[in-house]
């Protein structure tokens, strides 16, 4: 049972981490909490479904299908995030801290209702992209899906790490996170870097949305809300603005939820309460999160 719960927790944590990265990337650069991120993830899931309905099944099954679904879901979610930034956040930058926050909540409501009204207000089946197999291992039933999810998420995280640490654009992102004005003075096109950040964050959200659809087998207009809240919590837990922190926070939250729901009697009812109690305790002890630093490099 321990192994099974560990796998349950890691899979959940991997999805939370991917979403948390989207929050933390944006926050690291703009100090803005992108509340529309949960809807970007939901749109990613719907694009993933759309791809499967639009293309012939031969193209959308197996590893090739996986790649196609993910590429398009990520591209669409990333592009959407860029558009949201351009229309809803950029005009409000430098006005007040509150205006973009309210704008973000507005975008979230608009996107959710747009899907609700124009696409579907019902649960939609998300077809299996890969044939699911179940492995019996030390008393645990581990599905191939869980493994795919875990490795996809880890792969994307590794790619993000490489992108930020090793590429020129990544370097510019770090510079912007450090000091936007100084970066601009050094000749960095900060507007473009902000757009790239939204693109990358949105793409990760889109991937998380598609993974969410694959894992639970159905999607709905409001599927982003709860994981979005949880992932935001995870980002704060790990230290918002800090990339390693987001990943760590996501896995901690996933494992914690599974531990509470899986081991305490009546724990499923209490898991959210306990998760947030832990969050508050961590923040009391370390106000800027586990890996967060008060001042210094945020990305």
């Amino acid at each position: 049972m321990l192994l099974q719960q560990l796998v349950n927790g890691l899979t959940l944590g991997a999805i939370y981490s991917l979403i948390a990265l989207g929050y933390t990337l944006v926050y690291g650069i703009l100090m803005l909490i992108n509340f529309a991120h949960s809807e970007v993830l939901m749109v990613g899931a719907f694009v993933g479904l759309g791809v499967q309905l639009f293309f012939p099944p031969s193209l959308t099954s197996g590893p090739l299908g996986l790649a196609l679904v993910f590429t398009l879901a990520m591209a669409a979610a990333g592009a959407l995030n860029v558009v949201v930034e351009r229309l809803a956040y950029r005009p409000l930058r430098n006005i007040s801290r509150l205006a973009p926050l309210i704008s973000a909540i507005g975008v979230s409501i608009i996107l959710q209702n747009a899907v609700f009204l124009w696409v579907s207000n019902q649960s939609q089946t998300f077809p299996d992209i890969m044939k699911m197999r179940s492995f019996q291992f030390a008393g645990a039933d581990i599905s191939s899906l869980q493994i795919v999810i875990l490795f996809t998420a880890l792969g994307l995280m590794a790619a993000l790490h490489f992108f930020i640490q090793k590429t020129r654009v990544g370097k510019a992102m770090r510079a912007c996170a450090d000091d936007m004005e100084a970066a601009e003075l050094m000749g960095i096109d900060t507007k473009r870097i902000v757009a790239v950040t939204f693109l990358v964050g949105g793409a990760l959200g889109g991937a998380a949305g598609a993974l969410n659809g694959m894992y639970y087998g159905s999607i709905k207009y409001n599927l982003g809300f709860l994981p979005g809240m949880k992932a935001f919590t995870a980002a704060v837990l790990g230290g918002i603005g800090n990339i390693q922190g987001a990943v760590l926070g996501g896995f901690i939250l996933g494992l914690l939820e599974v531990a509470v729901a899986g081991y305490l009697p009546n724990g499923a009812e209490w898991k959210d309460v306990i998760a947030f109690v832990v969050l508050i305790c961590v923040l009391l002890a370390r106000p800027s999160g586990i890996l967060g630093e008060k001042i210094g490099e945020k990305v």
Partner: peptide, 16 residues
């Protein structure tokens, strides 16, 4: 046990 409407992951509970 109770579960929350809107929650999508019941695997921990089902494993127990």
């Amino acid at each position: 046990d109770g579960v929350s409407v809107g929650d999508r992951d019941f695997k921990a509970l089902l494993t127990r």
